[in-house]
Design a protein around this nucleic acid. Structure first.
Lengths: 142, 142
DNA sequence: TCAACAGTTTAGAATAAATATAATCTATTA
DNA sequence: TAATAGATTATATTTATTCTAAACTGTTGA
């Protein structure tokens, strides 16, 4: 319960009133010891398992999108059937295992800073993401 | 018509029989002076406008996916409602203008080589993509 | 050349993520 | 605490993508 004030703050800053449902969503997203990746469906399932309150999919979508706009979570660029989100908003990148449909963090120290020399007039860069797709290495047969 | 033999070759290598519809798809994808970005919907529309033959969406999906598997085109990682594809399979990256929903190429010379130090046992990297999201720069008001 | 068949095309149905709707409920504040 | 602006929810809608099955066609071998 000690964290509730932080959640209320995050919600208010996102332009949302603190409600039971939204605070529950915060508990799952921001109270974990570790950051994590999730889809909306997975998030709904986690809440269902943990909570004694019901949260509709619409509310989860709305809340996640508000946090996205505010930068509290970010979307991972992937052409998957569902959108993947990340509670780790620090600068880092991802492997995507295409065979297991699994995301793996790449710490920023493991990638040289991506420095883009090209600029677009009137535009600024809001985010830079590296996504490296990996597959089984069958070279090892040699 | 001089290019038809190339298209037949590409189709055969992709495990597809050369048919009227598929050759038309090749003409649009591979005969342009420039490479380009497209969605399935856009590709269907281009074919409709240019061709005297009808191609169903299902055929376009199947053919595009076969070319993808073969590496003749690639998918651009974006969390958009539709998938974006690129006929430029050389090493390069993208800006995505979130306000105009538009993709802009970044030549590889404009980005330092992305060197990932982390490795996953038994896996190899199949592709590395950089996607930089851009928005209007309102700093200029200062 | 042509019959036979494996592969192809297509319209339409099915699926599923994401968004919209509108009735009911709740946090806020005066 | 009453009024109301905003929130929640079940449900409907939208839309990209995939599936299906019937009709069609390129290929092969005789």
């Amino acid at each position: 319960m000690a964290y509730a004030v932080q959640y209320i703050d995050k919600l208010r800053k996102s332009g949302l009133r603190p409600t039971k449902q939204r605070i529950k969503i915060c508990e799952v997203l921001f109270d974990a010891e570790k950051t994590f990746h999730f889809t909306i469906k997975e998030l709904v399932k986690i809440i269902e398992n943990q909570a004694n309150i019901k949260v509709s999919i619409a509310t989860v979508y709305n809340t996640v999108h508000a946090f996205m706009r505010k930068g509290y979570i970010k979307e991972i660029p992937l052409n998957a059937s569902q959108s993947y989100y990340d509670t780790n908003v620090t600068h880092h990148h991802h492997f995507f295992d295409e065979e297991e449909n699994k995301l793996i963090d790449i710490h920023q120290d493991d990638v040289d800073e991506v420095n883009i020399k090209k600029t677009i007039p009137g535009k600024k860069i809001r985010s830079v993401e590296v996504i490296a797709k990996i597959v089984s290495d069958n070279q090892s047969q040699k």
